[in-house]
């Protein structure tokens, strides 16, 4: 009887303590997503004097024929795939380096945190300056190395603009992956490597047979986080190319923002948000499935 009231009171206190957090999360995350689902069934743009008019699935039908949407989806996929692959390779290299004992390791770790800590929008400008076609340091270095004879345009040419964005993104986010992988590396017992080496395994064999399998959960987690962020990449594109030249680096996020803010097409913007959200959720579900298969509980328990 007594423990029952205590438990009930504890439960009440629990709800009381968690309520403010849940309220804020609901306001900022759930409402906008739910609202986008609802608004995507309406046409609300300059044609309707910005008044919502119910139009069923018209926005989605329009999306099927919207070449610009498919192009932006393609650009996002290209950007995400290439940058995440590179980040994984670089991040793994950095993690392996930082896992060694060497003089000045603390400094190297601090240096590795710098790109992560700086604002993407601001450093995007720094990268635009680095890739500047007239005075950019990239052109100067390539020129000095004798690789190019005259200044080349980086941000004004579709393929090279995409390349520049990928470089900037890899710079910005590799530290994040490196740190997560490093935490994983540190949890692998060195006994395993010693035993494996006694069995005659080369370092490369050890890496493939011990490190990679045991690091699978961390790799998946890093990929999951990075995929979600990269799929919604906005700041970097907005300040470096604005989606240009001629839409060749326009990501879904940039298209959504332009649809809402420049064309004031709220209904269609909401439909774009909804579709992007669903694509993301599907990807997260797939990743979560593989995570559970790699036998780590997502909340770190059991």
């Amino acid at each position: 009887m007594e423990t029952d009231t205590i438990r009930r009171r504890e439960k009440q206190t629990g709800w009381l303590l968690i309520a403010p957090a849940l309220l804020i999360l609901a306001f900022v995350f759930l409402y906008p997503i739910g609202r986008a689902f609802w608004l995507s069934l309406f046409t609300q743009n300059l044609g309707t004097q910005l008044e919502p008019v119910f139009s069923g699935f018209n926005n989605y039908a329009r999306m099927f024929g919207d070449g610009r949407f498919w192009y932006s989806l393609w650009n996002t996929s290209v950007f995400t795939t290439i940058s995440i692959s590179l980040e994984l390779v670089f991040g793994m290299t950095f993690a392996l380096v930082l896992n060694q004992a060497f003089w000045g390791r603390g400094f190297a770790r601090t240096a590795a945190l710098i790109p992560w800590a700086l604002p993407t929008a601001v450093m995007g400008l720094a990268w635009a300056w680095i890739f500047n076609d007239q005075y950019g340091v990239v052109n100067d270095l390539l020129f000095r190395l004798g690789i190019i004879n005259e200044a080349i345009t980086w941000l004004g040419e579709p393929t090279r603009a995409m390349f520049s964005l990928v470089v900037a993104d890899v710079w910005k986010t590799t530290p994040f992956i490196a740190l997560i992988l490093l935490a994983g590396l540190q949890s692998i017992s060195s006994d395993l490597y010693e035993a494996h080496a006694i069995d005659g395994a080369t370092p490369i064999q050890s890496f493939r047979q011990i490190t990679l399998p045991l690091l699978a959960p961390q790799i998946l987690i890093a990929l999951l986080f990075r995929f979600a962020q990269s799929f919604g990449v906005f700041d970097l594109i907005q300040v470096m190319t604005g989606g240009g030249p001629a839409g060749s680096t326009e990501m879904v996020s940039i298209y959504i923002y332009a649809t809402v803010r420049r064309y004031l097409d709220f209904g269609y913007g909401a439909a774009l948000v909804t579709v992007t959200f669903l694509l993301l959720i599907i990807a997260v579900a797939i990743a979560a499935f593989f995570l559970s298969k790699s036998r780590i509980n997502i909340s770190g328990e059991r």
């Binding site: 629990g14 999360l25 906005f234 709220f266 948000v273």
Partner: peptide, 30 residues
């Protein structure tokens, strides 16, 4: 404190942290 639906809340908190902000600004703007 054991409250019902704890695991669901936790899962929601996790998933929510993956949302890109560009999906939120339209609703927040309203």
């Amino acid at each position: 404190l054991k409250i019902p639906g704890e695991q669901i809340i936790l899962a929601c908190v996790l998933v929510v942290s993956l949302f890109p902000y560009v999906l939120l600004f339209l609703g927040l703007l309203e």
